[in-house]
Simulated assay, not measured.
Amino acid sequence: MPLQHLGLVGYGEVGRIFSAGLHGQFQSCAVWDLKFADPATGAAAQAAAAAGVQALPSMAALCTQSDFILSAVTASNTLAVAQAAAPHLRPGTVFLDLNSASPGTKQQAALVIEAAGGRYVEAGVMTSVPPYGIRVPMLLGGPLAAELAEHLNALGMDAKAVAAEIGVASAIKMCRSVMIKGLEALVIESYSTARAYGVEDYVLPTLAETFPSIDWEKQGAYFFSRVVQHGQRRAEEMRESARTVQEAGFTPTMASAIADKQQAVADQARTGAFAHVGKQATWQTYADALLAARKP
């Protein structure tokens, strides 16, 4: 598969990690992000340049010079990115959609890209990217999935084709998200409430007794930190998980509630409730910040 010019849409955490890990394996590597045009976040373009990645001024510029595009944006922008890229795609461009979206959303995006002459592949990224970098496990779907997986693995990635149809990989990812993001939401609600009543020293040992393989102190701190840092992105992903449940014909009672909890923490983070909390903080410090932010 002769892919030589990499383009990334989105220069957030995932975009930065993938561009850093892959730019040396392509003849060119460029990135475009909406925040490049915002004076308040314009330093992001400078950061990309400093990392050896070309920051471009528009989606059109990115598509014009890329034969392999990775879309790594928030879940709510999945379809919008495909629609924005489609008019500018070079014929045969491979469009790898890394975003956490429902099978239906991915299918809509695929139709847009394929109609424009591109070759769409969906990806379900199966765990947090930072610990793994470009080796993060991902599942691929679409007619080109098997061929692309072989190519990506040769680049040092960990890709597995699971279906020639669009939607299967995303269904796997979204069903998993209900559990993982749900655990985050449950821990935050349970721990913060226990902290409010002063009973955490009784609650956590009972969890350890029931699930002894989990370090509930350490896992709690990790869950809090990830939601505080990425709650908005997680809330959007859970809305797509709710859409996935609806597409299956069920009422997304749990997925919707999880989205609400993730959004609530994201809203607190936006107001500065965790501004004083360090990166290596305990869960108790995060919970205390939520307690301090309670309304009378």
Rank of each mutant, 00 (worst) to 15 (best):
L3V: 07
Q4G: 04
H5T: 07
L6P: 10
L6R: 03
G7Q: 09
V14F: 08
R16A: 10
S19P: 09
G24C: 12
Q25L: 13
Q25W: 03
F26H: 11
F26L: 03
Q27K: 14
P39S: 09
A43Y: 06
A50C: 02
G52H: 06
G52N: 07
G52I: 01
L56E: 11
P57K: 11
T64P: 00
S66I: 05
S71F: 02
S71G: 13
A72E: 05
A72V: 13
V73F: 12
T74R: 14
A75P: 09
S76E: 14
L79Y: 07
A80I: 02
V81Y: 10
A82T: 09
A86W: 06
H88G: 07
L89H: 11
R90A: 14
P91A: 10
F95C: 12
S100D: 02
T105P: 11
T105K: 08
Q107V: 04
Q108F: 00
A109R: 09
L111K: 15
I113T: 08
A115C: 04
A116I: 01
G118N: 03
G118Q: 00
E122R: 12
T127V: 10
Y132T: 01
G133M: 03
L140W: 12
G141W: 09
L144P: 00
N153V: 12
A154C: 08
L155P: 05
L155K: 15
M157C: 15
A159T: 05
A159R: 08
K160H: 14
V162I: 15
V162D: 08
A164G: 14
G167L: 11
A169K: 07
K173Y: 09
M179Y: 14
L183V: 07
L186R: 08
L186N: 05
E189H: 04
S190Q: 00
S190L: 09
S190E: 02
S192L: 01
A194Y: 04
Y202V: 14
Y202R: 14
Y202T: 14
L204N: 00
T206C: 00
S213C: 00
S213E: 09
G220F: 05
Y222C: 02
Y222Q: 03
F223D: 12
V227A: 05
Q229I: 00
R233A: 04
R233C: 09
R233Y: 03
A235W: 06
E247C: 05
E247T: 06
T251M: 01
P252Y: 11
A255T: 08
I258Q: 06
K261L: 05
Q262S: 08
A266G: 05
D267S: 07
D267V: 11
Q268K: 12
A269V: 09
T271D: 07
T271H: 09
A275S: 15
G278V: 12
Q280R: 13
Q280W: 04
D288V: 02
D288Y: 01
A289C: 07
L291S: 06
A292T: 15
A292P: 06
P296V: 15
